[in-house]
Design a protein around this nucleic acid. Structure first.
Lengths: 227, 227, 227, 227
DNA sequence: GATGAATGAGAGTTCATTCAT
DNA sequence: TATGAATGAACTCTCATTCAT
């Protein structure tokens, strides 16, 4: 849930659990926002937006209810902040992978999809998507934002990979005729609907990834499939 | 969603109440539960569980707030009933298609996926999923139910198709090594995250289906893709 | 405090105190608004707007907290409603007095000011003014409204009296040169600042009125005042 | 309100803190209480007691929230201190005018009322009244104080003027039969309810004063008014 | 059965006050 | 002394649920 920004988390844990173990009335203005973010993210993921009480978020962050409002002006803005925070960190790194890669398309796919798997399933990207989806039309602005930041970037990256494959003569069909969403779909399924479609153990997931890759790359049918 | 016409019928009844009091009233009484179900489903889909007010459900069903409690003991139970009702009806029909089919696997896939497309996107299956997803862990029973009824059935059907293809020598890999979820994933993506991943026009959707099919059946890479 | 709309109050008291003495869960949709209005008015007057808790208003009206919101959308709108209700009833009647009067200007002043005394001091008009004044710039709309409805009407009425006096040759100066506010001012002082300027016993008030009238009508100085 | 310049000075100090640390800081320390008083008074006047946040008072005084509590034990005590401070300074000066005056009563009234106009409308006396009025029964001590300090003094002065006029044979009625409040009332109206009764421009005010004087001194009716 | 007025627990939010620094 | 982060009681407003009619 909270692997999105491991560095901050580490920092925070140090301060909290080592230096000032059980005190009340601490002052940690710098660390607070991300702590609250984490707490909120965890609870939003667990219960959805509406069913998450700000008091519980505060409790989980180890602070009082009112303190949340020192850093976020409302429950909604906390949610927004959590979403933005994760979107940015999630979508970074993936695109960089692509540009410098020199191996085969299959290897590149393996690398990129593997990376996305991690972000989506072990990280928080899937969680956020789930909330966004579930809250219906409550957050049209956030949906728009998500589409701009996360989707657009993801699609662009994927298009890049396909173009590259096309240039190398590895594609069966023109790159333009492939919708990147279909390639990412199984991941999204796992991320969004883990509980529903079957929350996998890490081992399962690796296997799922392999099959996903194989399916996407080579398809189901044998060359001589009777049609 | 699909049975939306019922609501109109209710409205009509309202208008006619003074003209034909007894008969219409009787007919409506029998229809009540499903009318409330429809209204609930529509609003849950639109706003999520928490953000849906029972008063609005009642209004949409053309009845008074208190009347809902004559048929459902709580908001939660209405939610569960609405989802269960739809789950059962949604997943029927697909499996029958398969058993009697005699053509090629590709044609069968085209038929079955097309059918699922309809159910998921134009019907309520996607809506159901969306609601379920957003409420996190709040309705574990419903999730379990969904997995039993919808997923299990869908997976079985899909497995059947794959086995059949295998028997006909059309599969590139053993049927057992294919996870049916990967085949259905792009559809689910469209159904669940229409707003997020891009709500398609019907034309778009057909094209999406074609590409989806093609991808699944033959994969991305050309036979001589450098690896 | 509550003499502004005697008719409603009477009706209401009948229903409440005679017919259904001590029941909970009553249903009195028609009487409720004015009951809540009265309760609100009383508490607003006692404590000011901000310091009045809606729960106390409810308690005083003999209902539950939430019930208030069935009739008024917010605390502010309750205040508005109370203000409007009283303004209208207060300013009515005064103007009618004037039009049909045939006696001397002094008698007319005596009549009109006496009437206003009653409204302002025994009624709620003064209370409302007090709140409006004390809450500073919180209710600019209400202040504007007050000026339109209450002030404008009052000023117009007063101007009418002055014009009438002028026509009868009773005025020492042209009617246009007299600011009606100065005539009403002592009353307003008493109404607004009863506690501060000295809350009078009814006897005091009558005497105050007499002196006020005498002062206004004939002034302080004797005809031969050395200047 | 009148001492507003102090606040600017404070701001300047803030800027200079690094340049001339010790001296300025010292000077500020002594000025603190009255700076806070000013800031409080200004905001209480603007918004009323409840709607004024201590944080804003601090900000306006150029200090931090917590610092207020070094000088005042609570919001209420700040409020009381602010009002007391001003009451004392406001009512001084008027009484001295009277004792040494040798001209006609009309001229004396003109002088005294003019002075009070200034205090009430341009100074803080009206503000104080306004605040006190709005808070209903919340500060009985302050109301008592106000009556003692401000009202009593004002009334005494006014009585002195009337007695003097009586001795000079200029009064139409015995001085004892005139309530000084009626003479001051129009001023209070303007001071308290500027927004409500019409906030005047300085020109308006002078004219209002003239008419006020004329009305009070000579009354409305002509000598031969039909009665 | 049907209604909708009434309820009251509960949530988000504010802000006077405290206190570690 | 001065600060401002932290607190938590208190408040407004919502809405699932009840029940007299």
């Amino acid at each position: 849930m909270t692997h999105g920004s491991l560095i901050w988390q580490t920092e925070k844990d140090c301060k909290m659990q080592t230096d000032q173990p059980e005190q009340k009335r601490q002052r940690r203005k710098d660390a607070r926002p991300s702590e609250i973010l984490e707490a909120g993210l965890a609870l939003f993921a667990e219960r959805g937006f509406a069913a998450t009480r700000l008091e519980d978020v505060a409790k989980r962050a180890g602070i009082a209810k009112g303190t949340v409002y020192l850093y976020f002006s409302s429950k909604e803005s906390l949610f927004e902040a959590a979403l933005k925070d994760r979107m940015v960190s999630t979508m970074e790194g993936v695109s960089e992978l692509t540009s410098s890669f020199t191996g085969s398309t299959e290897e590149l796919f393996r690398l990129v999809l593997g990376r996305i798997y991690g972000q989506m399933i072990d990280g928080d990207a899937g969680v956020l998507l789930r909330i966004l989806i579930g809250e219906g039309d409550r957050f049209p602005d956030l949906i728009a934002l998500y589409r701009e930041i996360a989707l657009a970037k993801g699609m662009t990256t994927m298009k890049g990979i396909l173009k590259r494959a096309e240039a190398r003569g590895e594609l069966r069909v023109p790159a333009d005729e492939i919708d990147p969403r279909m390639i990412v779909a199984p991941i999204a399924i796992l991320a969004i609907g883990g509980k529903i479609f079957g929350a996998q153990s890490p081992g399962d997931r690796d296997e799922f990834l392999e099959r996903h890759l194989d399916l996407v790359l080579r398809g189901l049918l044998s060359a001589n499939a009777g049609r």
